[in-house]
Design a binder for these strands. Structure first.
Lengths: 381, 381
DNA sequence: CTGAAAGCGCTTACAG
DNA sequence: CTGAAAGCGCTTACAG
């Protein structure tokens, strides 16, 4: 038994030890008024703090006997290492990589996650965390894997990925698994992989919300058009799910059903988009609502304005600089916000919690499906 | 000039010094690859780190000459103190107090801020922050000031206040000013005081959002009722503003105006509430929408169900356990969420940033006005 | 007015 | 397998 009688805050624990047994119940009685440190543990175990550190970090080179002894003490006293002191002492730098689509001329959506990354890094840089962001093009076949390889070459401690091109991201996740580099997804998910977490929206449910909003406003006797614009549907379940959710709402809804139509346009060209829409609306004049499954909704808004179709209720996704003016004017009734800033922010924080603080992180962090209209827009921007 | 040639990362800075002048431009050229510490500054100033510390913390006992010299260096090098090392070294404990209404039987709204407080403290307790929460009753005349006095007696380093009883909170804020204890408001605000910040919703705008939702669904030929239930209107601008915002929407809206009616019920008793509502609806049978200005909306939902008035569109505030079942059933169409968890969370974090990290904090932190309906409810709970 | 030293709780070589 | 020592960047008495 070490001589610890002179350490005031450990006297209670000492008493318990004298009785010959150190148990959780005893500790509850002990109630030390000071934080437990490795020094205390070393004292109680009769070893040096170096040995305690070895056990705590599983660094080996400790006899089984002392290992067990120390573990029993840390557990009983519910020892919590001081992260501040730890990062201060270890000059270790943790390097993250983020892989996401580049901002293309067609949509500024991917600007937002950049500020989320910045915010997260500002918050955790004290802990020696850095991040490097890598951009791929969703339009170029090999872009994702090329860029991902570059990230891998730097051997980061963790990778945050927006897997918009699902096939390629799947391949890459397997490589990360092999190389034992932890990764997390944001914005869209690929199920059943070893990602630390997914941060983003439940895409099916977001389609259901879109449908509810449409339903809430439209009368009973009308038809609705679901439009997908250049969304790489086959390689992007996220967008597919929105459409499915939208359709599901009307399928399961009791009462007057509405007739749904679907239109896929694989072009960014306003000419192409207009003529497709014009054709469809001519064939189905009873369409009173249009739901666009991604941030390209502004194309449809433009069309509605140029053709003066103000009777059509338009709903889509994302508070991009392209979409916002149409929401403000009322051409778009509602935009569903994916919280792109929070997505990347929480993704990095999750990596930090898991890798640096060794905390448990939920497998899915589902962010709210924000309903945004002209009147509450300013607080989401 | 101190001998610093042997300190690799300062060589560039040294070069600049040799030229006789230390200026921002020079520093940009210098680009040190290592973090600047008080040790570096001490070296450059030719003093001990103790003196540097005195200057940085304005502790006096330093000659004007060395003070200026050190300040010039810290500013030029853009010195950022290491908060981790600082809190580790100073065993100082920072104690916050939170003053807010107690959870009453009539509404569970005030449960939510408690988890916000818990979340914030968990995040900053490493920095030696603690918080003690004090509850007052909005129904008892002197409760707020009594409870606030108790908080004051502990001489906290900062106070977070939900000033639901405005007159009393105003008095108390003046006391805090006198005693130089910094304070912040959450949930509702009192303008023109010395609060560090206000975290909460823009209440006028939230009323406007309520009106928009009502408008979006109702046809052109109908009337709307605005109900306030036991809301201490005179002593609570927050609730008053919501009503004003709601009315304002219809006043400024071009096109078909809707007729609005107003009803104030100063009782929690369902009997009283039902008979008031029944009377009003009998007199104005064209009412198709009811907007309730606070979380007591569930009373009206109950009334609508018991009287089978499913044609009435009901909108109110807050995701309380009382309201949620009615939102799920569809009796309530929309609830406006105030983000009560984020309010107290951000309030404490703001106090922390201001008081501990000495950061600037915006005078108002306006949280989003969440539109919640059955379909996106699960992600806000 | 200023400096030297001890210490916060932990990590990291290094010596044995 | 284990311990002693130096150090992370800062703060806090204390001595002069």
């Amino acid at each position: 038994m070490p001589n610890i009688l002179n350490i005031a805050h450990l006297i209670n624990i000492y008493t318990v030890f004298v009785n010959g047994n150190l148990s959780k119940t005893s500790y509850v009685m002990a109630k030390p008024d000071k934080k437990i440190t490795i020094k205390d543990i070393a004292l109680l175990a009769g070893v040096s703090i170096g040995t305690v550190d070895r056990v705590i970090h599983n660094r080996g080179e400790v006899s089984e006997k002392t290992r067990v002894k120390i573990l029993r003490i840390t557990e009983t006293l519910n020892y919590q290492p001081d992260v501040l002191a730890s990062t201060l002492a270890s000059k270790k730098n943790v390097r993250f990589a983020t892989i996401m689509p580049k901002v293309d001329k067609e949509s500024s959506f991917w600007k937002a996650p950049l500020s989320g990354i910045e915010k997260a890094i500002k918050e955790i840089e004290h802990y020696g965390i850095t991040n490097k962001t890598y951009f791929f093009s969703v339009f170029e076949k090999n872009s994702f894997l090329e860029v991902a390889q570059k990230a891998l070459d730097e051997n980061p401690d963790g990778i945050l990925i927006a897997p918009s091109v699902q096939e390629e991201a799947l391949q890459f996740a397997n490589i990360c698994d092999e190389r034992k580099i932890p990764y997390a997804f944001f914005n869209s998910n690929i199920a059943e992989l070893n990602q630390i977490t997914y941060v983003g929206q439940d895409s099916i449910q977001s389609g259901i919300v879109g449908a509810k909003l449409m339903d809430y406003c439209l009368g009973t006797n009308c038809e609705i058009l679901v439009v997908s614009i250049y969304s790489f549907l086959k390689n992007n379940t996220h967008i597919q799910n929105r459409k499915q959710g939208f359709i599901k709402y009307y399928e399961t809804k009791s009462g007057a059903k509405k007739q749904l139509h679907s239109l896929e346009i694989n072009s960014f060209n306003d000419g192409d988009i207009y003529s497709e829409l014009r054709k469809t609306l001519k064939e189905k004049p009873n369409i009173k609502g249009i739901f666009v499954t991604n941030s390209r909704v502004f194309h449809v808004a433009r069309f509605i304005e140029s053709e003066k179709l103000s009777h059509i209720n338009l709903i889509g996704y994302d508070l991009t600089t392209e979409n916002i003016p149409y929401l403000e004017k009322g051409t778009i009734s509602f935009l569903i916000n994916q919280k792109p800033i929070e997505q990347s922010y929480s993704g990095l924080i999750a990596l930090f919690n898991k890798i640096v603080l060794k905390k448990d992180v939920p497998k899915e962090i589902l962010l709210p499906i924000d309903i945004v209209t002209r009147e509450n827009l300013m607080y989401y921007e």
